[in-house]
Design a binder for these strands. Structure first.
Length: 823
RNA sequence: GGGCGGUUAGCUCAGCGGUAGAGCAUCCCGCUUACACCGGGAAGGUCGUCCGUUCGAAUCGGACAUCGCCCACCA
């Protein structure tokens, strides 16, 4: 070996791609391959990746998540578990469709012009083109996934899982179709689930409008924020016990502008305190009014089309956009003297999560999934502790939501996704589901293979498949078991399910985690609940924010490209930064300062290694032989009669090891990272290496050899502790250590376990004293200008025990003296 | 309207019952043959406010202030 050519500065760019490639080529992260290198098998440890959007690319949020997962995966793998981290991507229905539609728009095309088949082909083409961007990026970043098991939510096997789940829920009546009020996005032209609505407070106006009461000379005044919806009013309501209006109940009012007679009804829903105590009822355009309308059998007059323009039900306002209609309605009311007053009003409105367009509540025929029967066991599983949510406060959030859960609108008026496997009869309109869950490839796209041939009600052969696709989260909900082969009873499913862990951000706690728990409990054919849960522990990580503390996310434009950051600072340093800043519960504001300082840490490690290598060469040159410093040798033959600094460094190493293992058990990445950082830099480098320097060249060859062996022992252990955090650097250095290359990858070596016999409190106390002494002496010398140069610890260790004894006797006095600037 | 989280050194944040910590920035001294992406030293905080529990509180309880987030069908 020749180490003269080791660069002084660590250059991550020159080694990372190499190891990234080797790891994948050797399939080290395929559990069966890894197991061949390891004998004691501690059982399986598995995690199904939160699948990124297939057409997306990595942002810092991914990198944080993947770093946190990867640290635990590598740590457990080193501990001897058969670790499976199953990667894959999500077809991401609406997100992906929007991207392709945007591309079409550049060609001045719409998907409608293209037609459904051609549009789907375009999306598949786009997927083929950009679908493995994420994978390439993850491989480059060393993410230790088992790429031989990669999955995609729209591939045939997972399509089959979706069909199986849908058909079972459908047959049991848990999936139903009906006309209800849903959230409609006038831009995306699709229904959305409640979760996809973003509420935000806005300044608005409260308009007070007079409705004449028929057969009297007076009128009632209603208050509304959306006057244009009055075109669809079918009643006016008051509280049943409101004395002010009791006499009006049963009378009729004349709906202004539309000249329609509508009843005045009484309903508990009306609040006597708000507004005027009289409410206009628009069953087709407000969720509350919808309920009231159904209770009283009121007509539901939908006055808007899918673009939120007034339709033919809106009389003179037909064709106007909802906001234009509002202006005109107000102007007309004003002209007729029916607009009593306008007040400023602040309230929350709902917008489309995807495109931020204001949503329109709309009555629509959609598919729903009944939630209560699924939620009950999912609540139970968390409440009884079978599934642990960390940090604990999220458990309460989860339970609160689950206990007030509403039915889930699962149909989307999109073309990209799993099409609903139910056919409509063109003759009798009855519904007939696919006969089974088999999937076939038609035109390179997976489709249900067993379409019904005849209507199950009238026997007609004229059937049309429902045009809608399923909410993208429907397939995600099955992810932990669909990726392992369900509905088939596969070896992987038996081996790795339930998965050990799930790690994701709180933003998908309801969207995803809750639904995985419900579906796992529903579909896994095991008796015991503990065998059906999708994961045993759910760790909710914080979000990465940019310097302005803005949330980084797929839909916002402020994403930081991890590849750019890692290019500048190195993947290991970036990972370390994310880990050491990842205290549970608080968000991370990524800063260049921190990245720089942990790049310096990587450099420090590199140079400590460089010191070892260079001086080992010098030793060989001087003595014509090498001390045996391979891990095999030092583990067999560490001497018992070590001196103070040796006993001290082993004691500190043992402490670091113990704390790191405990911290990682509890997802306290920051604590683990702090411990190894401090140990490596400020104990191993600043004190220990300085201390042993003289010994390494001791005239007594045996003394020198022991020093070398201890030095490498500690360094080797430190590299292993560091490996989950800095896989590239440690892998590179491990391979350069004498005798290590032939042992294979560091990722398959043992992670250091706690060795309590190494803890040595006495050595730590003595060492603290010595360190004080050295610092004091250095200060005194510097201040007295006895010697311009500062002295390394080793000088004291080897030559000046008498000074130490003196110091021991007069510690306080010397320390005081040392700090006197008067000297 | 409910719920959650933050408020600690100039900046960004750890600590969460026993004499205030890190990184960066600042000041002083050192280019000692691993590393100036370095080494040594120093300065800097009555831990948002008030009340309480305790021998003892940044750390536990309560109130308040302030910032942020999540959930929510009062038009």
């Amino acid at each position: 070996m020749k180490h003269d050519d080791i660069p002084k500065a660590y250059e991550p760019g020159s080694i990372e791609p190499h190891w990234a490639r080797v790891w994948v080529e050797e399939k080290l992260f395929t559990p069966e391959v890894a197991a061949r290198h390891r004998t004691p098998d501690k059982g399986t440890y598995s995690l199904a990746i939160p699948p990124p959007n297939v057409t997306g690319s990595l942002h810092m949020g991914h990198m944080l998540e993947h770093t946190q997962i990867d640290i635990l995966m590598r740590w457990r793998r080193m501990q001897g578990y058969r670790v499976l981290w199953l990667p894959g991507t999500d077809h991401a229905g609406i997100a992906t469709q929007v991207i392709v539609e945007r591309q079409l728009a550049e060609e001045k095309l719409t998907r409608q012009q293209l037609g459904r088949d051609e549009f789907e082909r375009r999306v598949w083409a786009w997927k083929a083109e950009s679908g493995d961007t994420i994978k390439k990026q993850m491989v480059r970043l060393g993410t230790s996934c088992d790429w031989t098991r990669e999955r995609f939510t729209l591939e045939p096997a997972l399509y089959q899982a979706v069909l199986e789940a849908f058909l079972r829920l459908y047959r049991e009546g848990l999936i139903y179709r009906g006309r209800y009020m849903i959230n409609w996005c006038p831009r995306c032209h699709t229904a959305l689930s409640d979760l996809e609505v973003e509420h935000s407070e806005r300044e608005a106006k409260l308009y007070y409008i007079k409705y004449p009461v028929l057969g009297t000379e007076y009128s009632v005044t209603v208050a509304t924020t959306r006057p244009e919806t009055m075109l669809g009013d079918t009643a006016v309501a008051v509280h049943p016990e409101d004395e002010r209006f009791r006499h009006l109940v049963g009378k009729r009012a004349l709906l202004p502008l539309m000249k329609r007679e509508i009843p005045i009804i009484a309903d508990e829903y009306v609040s006597r305190e708000f507004g005027t105590g009289v409410v206009k009822i628009t069953p087709a355009h407000d969720p509350n009014d919808f309920e009231v309308g159904r209770r009283h059998g009121l007509p539901e007059i939908d006055v808007m089309d899918n673009e939120a323009r007034i339709n033919e039900q809106g009389g003179a306002y037909r064709g106007l956009d909802r906001f234009a209609a509002r202006k005109k309605v107000l102007a007309d009311l004003e002209a007729q003297g029916l607009l009593e007053k306008v007040e400023p009003y602040r309230h929350a409105v709902g917008a489309c999560q995807r495109c931020k367009t204001l949503l329109e509540p709309k009555i629509s025929e959609q598919w729903f999934c009944q939630m209560e029967p699924l939620a009950k066991p999912a609540i139970e599983a968390v409440r009884c502790g079978l599934i642990k949510i960390v940090p604990e406060n999220w458990e309460k959030v989860y339970l609160d939501w689950m206990e007030r859960i509403h039915d889930w609108c699962i149909s989307r008026q999109l073309w990209w996704g799993h099409r609903i496997p139910v056919w409509h009869c063109n003759d009798c309109r009855a519904l007939t589901p696919a006969r089974d869950s088999r999937v076939e490839m038609v035109d390179a796209r997976p489709q249900p293979a067993s379409a019904p041939e005849t209507c199950q009600q009238c026997g007609s052969r004229r059937l049309t498949q429902d045009p809608d696709v399923l909410d993208t989260w429907f397939s995600s909900a099955l992810w932990p078991f669909s990726t392992l082969g369900w509905p088939d009873d596969t070896a992987d499913l038996r081996d790795f399910y339930p998965t050990t862990l799930m790690i994701n951000g709180f933003d998908i706690l309801f969207f995803w985690d809750a639904r995985m728990i419900m579906t796992g409990l529903k579909f896994i054919p095991q008796e015991a609940m503990e065998a059906r849960i999708p994961f045993r522990t759910l760790y909710i990580h914080a979000l990465v924010r940019d310097a302005e503390r803005q949330k980084m996310s797929k839909t916002r434009g402020n994403v930081l490209d991890p590849l750019v950051v890692t290019e500048e600072y190195g993947t290991d340093a970036t990972r370390f930064t994310l880990a050491i800043m990842a205290a549970p519960g608080s968000d991370i504001a990524l800063s260049a300062d921190r990245l720089r300082s942990y790049r310096a840490f990587a450099n420090k490690i590199w140079n400590a290694a460089r010191f070892l290598f260079i001086n080992l060469e010098k030793f060989e040159a001087a003595h014509g032989e090498l001390p045996d410093v391979s891990p095999l040798a030092w583990r067999m033959a560490l001497p018992l009669d070590l001196d103070l600094a040796d006993r001290w460094i082993f004691s500190r190493l043992e402490r670091a090891t113990g704390v790191m293992n405990l911290a990682l058990e509890g997802f306290r990445y920051h604590e683990a990272a702090h411990v190894i950082y401090h140990f490596f830099w400020h104990e191993f480098c600043d004190w220990y290496i300085e201390w042993v320097k003289p010994k390494l060249t001791d005239e007594n060859l045996e003394v020198a050899k022991v020093a070398w062996r201890v030095l490498f022992a500690v360094f080797d252990e430190a590299l292993r502790l560091l490996h989950p955090f800095m896989p590239f650097l440690t892998e590179e250095l491990w391979h350069r250590l004498p005798g290590c290359a032939q042992l294979g990858s560091i990722s398959l070596q043992d992670f250091p376990l706690s060795r309590p016999e190494w803890a040595n409190y006495q050595a730590e106390q003595e060492m603290a004293l010595v360190q004080d002494a050295i610092v004091a002496l250095r200060n005194i010398r510097a201040k007295m200008k006895i010697d311009a140069r500062h002295h390394v610890p080793g000088e004291l260790a080897t030559s000046d025990q008498a000074v130490l004894a003196l110091f021991r006797g007069h510690r306080q006095a010397i320390l005081r003296l040392a700090n006197l600037s008067a000297l």
